[in-house]
Amino acid sequence: MRELLLELEKAVQQQRPVCYTCLVETRGSTPQKPGAAMLIFSDGSQVGTLGGGCVEAEVKRRALRLIDAESPEIMTFQLDNDYGWDDGLICGGRMKVLVDPVKTEQDLQYYHSMLQLLESDRGCTEAIIIPPESAEDDNKPDRFLIDAESKLVATRGKQETPSRLFDHLKPIKNRPRPYVSQGIAYLTFHQTCQLVIVGCGHIGQKVAELASDVDFDIIAVDDRQEYCNAKRFPAAKQLIVGSFDTALSKLTVTPDTFVIIVTRGHNHDEEALGHLATTDARYIGMIGSKRKVKLIFEDLLRLGTPREALARVHAPLGFDIGSQTVPEIALSIVAELIAYRNLDALPEGYQRASLVDDIKTPNTAD
């Protein structure tokens, strides 16, 4: 989306006629889901996609008629026989598409605010009032841009902010899917969470590859240059090489940070967890057998790490899917990370009691 908005800014600055189109509501089977966006230029070229096929061509055809219009519209497309794909399949759903001709710097102000929010990487929500289908003479949608703190940042349209706008606004933190409530479409743009991978062996490397594909920003940490480098971690935003004690003491950890500990040995795992257990990280996971995890917990309790800090550590790390190979182990870890990021908890069937509950307080008589 950031790249598309940059292209939109460039087009307006070059006085190149352009329409911003966005899928705001779907019902049934459709080739794309709400939030998909596309720019359409007067020469018929495009940036982005609404899913391809005949319906995209029809959106383009109808959008070109509006490219010189003064205000946006909502268009409805029923995906029947008229919109069969090249392979003959028919989705059978329905799509509502916002078509907004953007011509002037004033038109662009709303999109500039959106770009600023996306570049701050805090997440935001766009609320779009969908006019009733009965309102044939008034299908002009009003739009409202809301930041991660639920504050109204920008508007595009003529209506005053409706009182119901915030009634069903879902927190960005929980990464809600696009949804419609009381005639308002809510399109969510999620924050990219930071994932710190402590240990750059085979498992850490594979986790980084998979996690970057699902929108985690990767920070890789290891004490070995030959393992922690750009060749092995091409998607990493940051590579930190040094002793775990030094590297982790300098690491910035926030309530949006996810951490996994997958070093090459018991002692390094314990050292890393000792530094990280009491931080504000949203999620901390550590790989290892139950026996190893208990031994590390026992040592850290003796060293003074609070029991409640260890109780929130996910260990052994990863969903139990019978993993045997490195890719399977990495997949089980990333699945757990996604679940916790999107749901703010693990699904009920995957929740488990902390192994720290099995350990008596140090120096307490049996």
Rank of each mutant, 00 (worst) to 15 (best):
L64C: 06
G199M: 03
Q205D: 06
T161S: 00
E105Q: 12
A315C: 13
I218A: 05
K140G: 09
D82Q: 13
A127H: 01
F166S: 00
E348V: 15
R177E: 10
E271C: 13
I338C: 06
D320E: 14
K60R: 11
F189C: 01
T21W: 03
P255A: 05
R122A: 11
K103Q: 12
A37E: 13
P362G: 07
F41N: 05
R175E: 11
I184C: 00
A57P: 09
L5N: 09
F233N: 05
V293I: 13
E7C: 13
N267T: 12
D213Y: 13
R232L: 14
G35H: 00
D215S: 13
M286C: 07
F189N: 00
F77L: 07
C200M: 05
T263N: 02
I219F: 05
S45D: 12
D68M: 09
R16M: 14
R302F: 11
D86C: 10
N81R: 12
V198N: 04
E149V: 04
I296F: 04
S45N: 11
R94V: 13
I203Q: 08
D357H: 15
P72T: 02
D121T: 06
S42I: 10
K294C: 15
D256P: 08
G183N: 00
T76H: 04
I359M: 08
K158A: 06
K294T: 12
Q15N: 15
P255N: 07
K170D: 06
L295D: 10
E58M: 12
D82P: 07
E9I: 14
N267Q: 14
R16L: 15
L8G: 10
G349D: 14
A365D: 12
Y111G: 01
S45Y: 03
Q238G: 08
E119H: 07
T49C: 03
L276V: 08
G44F: 02
L8H: 04
T252F: 08
V99F: 02
L8S: 10
T257D: 01
R143P: 01
K206E: 15
Y111L: 03
A37P: 09
S71V: 14
Q324F: 11
E336L: 07
Y350D: 13
R61I: 10
I203C: 15
P131C: 03
A37K: 11
E348L: 15
A335V: 07
A220M: 02
N363D: 14
E25L: 01
R232W: 08
I40P: 01
